[in-house]
Amino acid sequence: MSALLRGRAFRDVAVVIVVVFGFGSIAMLLAHVSPLDGFGALFDGAFGTRSELAETLVQTTSLLFPALGVAIAARAGLFNIGADGQLILGGFAAGWIGAQFPLPGYLAIPMVLLAGTFAGGAWGAIAGFLRARFGANEVIATLMLNYVAVLLATYLVNGPLQQGGAGASETAGLPKAAQLPDLIADSRLTWAFVIALVVAFVLRWVLQRTVFGYELRAAGDAPEAAKRAGIDLGRTAFVAMTLSGALAGLGGATIVSGVLHRFNTGLSPGYGFIAIAVALVGNLDPLWIVVASFAFGVLQSGGVAMQAEALVPRDVVTLVTGLAIIALAGRRVVASLRST
C-alpha cells in the first residue's frame, strides 16, 4: 500500500502548486477578488513581518508532528487517519499532568512532552493491537478512535479531572516552568519547532539506516516478501501505529506547552487530517514532509491574513487543500492502475 501512496515528490509538488494557484484563483474570482491581491495578501500574511513568519512556523510545527506520524504508519503500509485524536489525547495528558504536578523547569518540560507522547502512543497502539491481533482494519479503527478521543478528553476535562471552570472545556494553565521557551521573542514560536526538525531528521535516519526502519519499510512495500524474510508483520504494525500515535501525541503536547499553555478540547483545527495531505505531498519522506509542512503552514497562517486583508473567505484555503489531496490521490490511483 505504501507504494501506492508514494509517487514522485517533484511531480506531486508541481501538481499541488497548479491546483492551489489554479483553483485558488477561480475561487477568488467567484468571491470577486483579484487572485493577485488574494495571493499577495496570503504571502504577505505568511512572510510579511517577523511575527507573521513566526506564526507560519508555529503552524508548520503543529502540522509536522502528526504528518510524521501519518508517514511512519504509511511506510509500514498502514493508514493512520486517527492522528487528530492521538494529538488531542497527547495534548490532554500534557495539559493535565503539567498543571497537576508542578516540577522545576528542567524536569517539567520533558515530563509534559513525554506525557503527551505516551498518551498519543497508547491511543495509536490500540489500533495497532487490533490490527496485529485480529487483523482489524486500521482505517476504521483510527477513524472511530478520533471520536472516542475527543469525547474522552471532553469528559475528563469537564468531569473527574476538572481543573478549569469558567465554562470552557480546558485544564488549568501550565506553570511557567512547563511552558516551552520562545524561539523568537514576542511570538508564539517556541523550541517545539526545533524539536520537530530534529524528530524529522531522526525519523529519516531510523527509516533509512536502522534494521527497524528496514523491516518497517519492507512490511509496507512488500508484506508477503517481508513475512517470508522473517519479519513479524503483526509486531511491525503494532510498533508502527504506536510510534505514529506517539508522534501525533508529542505534537499535541507541544501545542499545549508552547502555544496554548493549557489543554483545551478545541486545540486542533484538524491538524491530524491536514497532516494526511502533508504526508502525501511530502511523499512519506520525513525531509520532504518538513518542506510540505512549511507549505501548508504558509496556507494556514497566510489564509487568515488573506481573509483579513483581501477579504477572501478563508474557506478558499480549505477548498484548495481538499482539491490538492484529491488531485494527489487521483494521481496515485491512476499510477497504480497503470502499473498492474
Partner: peptide, 20 residues
C-alpha cells in the same frame, strides 16, 4: 510478490532475510 521488494534496489533486496 513473495521474495522481492520491487521498488527497492538490488542491495537492499540482497539483504532481505538477513537484515538481522
Amino acid at each position: 510478490h513473495e521474495a522481492l521488494v520491487l521498488g527497492w534496489n538490488v542491495r537492499d533486496n540482497v539483504v532481505l532475510g538477513r537484515q538481522r
